[in-house]
């Protein structure tokens, strides 16, 4: 086989190969390449969120009026606390990850096992919390009415407290035939029906004199504009077209539908990263347990997945700021 080996005469010189100008191994370099490109993907998401927010700046929902729930605390107004909790979970799992990397440098297999296990638990708790956050957001809170132009009208009483549509809608008995494939267009499925029809909302609104409408538009001070009773009645009678409960990709009871779209895409994309991070961590965890890296004499794989895990934490720091705080 010697005939195939080409000697260039540069062995051991600068351009002879084998140099590590950045003093990082191939695997670590590739992880950094991936992280930079993924950071650009996330910043594309967050920048387009900023674009849409600036575009509809007078009609954008205020995040701490949207995310006000905490598990097991029904009816308690707790803006921000749950997201703060999630942030701490993720930062803490970053800490255990970096402790695992540190233990790996010292070749302490048992410590790596413990810290990686804690990291996986932290990641799982975070993904679970995000699922709960999504479920709460999708289920909705008070309900609202969408106008013909797609604007959201929310309901307040005269004291300025939010009123749920279920609390005032009049029950009008009607019957409707559910769409079935054999009676209609076979490839179209029945839409999800809201709990109340527009007619029931209109009747209930007229019957309760203390109800006002809050539009999605904000005044100069950043407060959403509340209409007078006469304007509210006009708006509801003439323009309401659709009852919205919760949020999905088309309708959003909290305000502009783009807010819900970006919420689902950005936190969903991040949650997918956390999920895949947990899976990769589990694979590496079992490799540590069976002693692969002990035999290899290097725990650099732990360091590489650690880089990915910290990156996921880093992205969350930005998502937290731009979605929930600013």
């Amino acid at each position: 086989m010697e005939a195939t080996v080409a000697k260039t005469g540069t062995e051991g010189k600068t351009w002879g190969g084998g140099n590590q100008p950045l003093r990082a191994s191939y695997g670590k370099m590739m992880m950094w390449f991936f992280i930079v490109s993924d950071a650009l993907t996330f910043s594309g998401f967050l920048a387009s969120y900023g674009f849409s927010r600036f575009k509809f700046v007078d009609a954008w929902p205020i995040a701490d009026e949207v995310f006000t729930h905490f598990p097991f605390l029904h009816g308690v107004d707790a803006p921000m606390y749950y997201v703060a909790f999630m942030t701490f979970i993720l930062i803490f799992s970053s800490v255990t990850m970096v402790l695992a990397v540190d233990a790996g440098h010292k070749m302490q297999q048992n410590k790596v096992i413990i810290y990686m296990f804690l990291t996986i638990i932290g990641g799982a708790v975070f993904v679970g919390s995000q699922a709960w956050e999504w479920a709460t957001f999708i289920k909705g809170d008070y309900g609202a009415v969408e106008t013909k132009g797609g604007r959201i009208l929310q309901f307040l009483d005269t004291e300025g407290e939010r009123v749920a549509i279920a609390d005032f809608a009049t029950n009008i008995p009607t019957s409707r035939d559910a769409h079935v494939a054999k009676n209609g267009v076979w490839y179209e499925a029945e839409d999800t029906q809201s709990s109340f029809s527009v007619e029931e909302i209109k009747a209930g609104f007229l019957a309760n004199d203390n109800l006002l409408v809050r539009t999605q538009y904000k005044d100069e001070n950043g407060h959403q504009i509340v209409l007078s009773r006469e304007e509210s009645v006009q708006k509801i009678i003439n323009e309401s077209a659709f009852v919205v409960e919760g949020a999905n990709l088309k309708h959003n009871e909290y305000g502009h539908p783009l807010f819900a779209d970006f919420f689902f895409f950005i936190t969903g994309f991040h949650g997918f990263h956390v999920f895949s991070g947990v899976l990769i961590n589990i694979i590496i965890f079992f490799n540590v347990v069976i002693g692969t890296y002990e035999r290899r004499g290097s725990y650099e794989m732990v360091e590489k997945v650690g880089l990915y895990w910290h990156f996921v934490d880093l992205v969350w720091v930005f998502v937290f700021t731009f979605f929930y705080l600013v």
Partner: peptide
């Protein structure tokens, strides 16, 4: 290594954010 990772990302992200926010405000 530090500079090639950090400054590349910071430059591109700042540029993208600046362009998109100015455009968004204009459409508003």
């Amino acid at each position: 290594l530090r500079r090639s990772v950090v400054w590349t990302a910071i430059f591109l992200i700042c540029y993208l954010v600046l362009i998109l926010l100015i455009e968004g405000d204009y459409i508003y």
